[in-house]
Structure formats: structure tokens, C-alpha cells
């Protein structure tokens, strides 16, 4: 029997909802000097875009700013998108 589209069964794929990084107005910028790798940012990130090295995946980061708000070292700042100076 030919293969048919019987019902809406979706398969897991990275980027299933598009590159949500484009939603961002503010971008998190990590000050590696200040970071003590406590893991709070990764734990609190709703979208899990912060990896074990505490690098933020900007393709997907929506720029909510929770990481910056929760970073005990104030090592993350939110910078307006388009501002390349990082300040």
C-alpha cells in the first residue's frame, strides 16, 4: 500500500519553530571575566539555549533577559540588537 498522510505526526527537529533568535530586541552578552560558571543562567533559561560552557545560542535565544536578571555575578548584560559595541 502506498504511503499516506494519515494523521499529523510531527517529528522532533531543531528549529521546528524557526530561528527564534530573530525575535530578539535585546541580546545577552556574557562577560567571561565575571562569570563563575554557577549555572544559574542555564538552569533558568526557559528555552535551554545556554550550553554547558555557558555559551548562548543566539540563533535561538529570544532575548527574554532572565539570564541577565538572575546572574548572581551580573556577568550578563542585555544589549540592544544592532549595537555591536557590546556596551
Amino acid at each position: 500500500m502506498e504511503k499516506r498522510e494519515r494523521l499529523a505526526i510531527s517529528r522532533p527537529r531543531e528549529g521546528a519553530c524557526g530561528n527564534t533568535g530573530t525575535w530578539r530586541v535585546f541580546r545577552p552578552v556574557v562577560d567571561k571575566e565575571r562569570c563563575n560558571a554557577c549555572g544559574m543562567c542555564a538552569m533558568y533559561c526557559p528555552d535551554g539555549v545556554i550550553n554547558d560552557e555557558y555559551e548562548i545560542d543566539l540563533v535561538f535565544c529570544k532575548g527574554c533577559g532572565i539570564c541577565a536578571a538572575e546572574c548572581p555575578k551580573k556577568a550578563i548584560t542585555m544589549v540592544r540588537e544592532g549595537n555591536t559595541t557590546g556596551t
Partner: peptide, 26 residues
């Protein structure tokens, strides 16, 4: 199309109009 934990899939996720239409046709 039984649900399987070793082959994760989402059943009945949002479906576009055109795709929904094809699935209804089936």
C-alpha cells in the same frame, strides 16, 4: 502509528490548512 517512546513524535500538533486538508482527505 502507535505512540512509541523510542521514536518520539508529537501527535496532533498545529497543522497548516493545506496539510490538515490532505490529512482529512485521507
Amino acid at each position: 502509528h502507535a505512540i512509541q517512546t523510542d521514536a518520539p513524535a508529537g501527535y496532533g500538533c498545529m497543522t497548516s490548512s493545506a496539510d490538515y486538508f490532505r490529512i482529512r482527505y485521507d
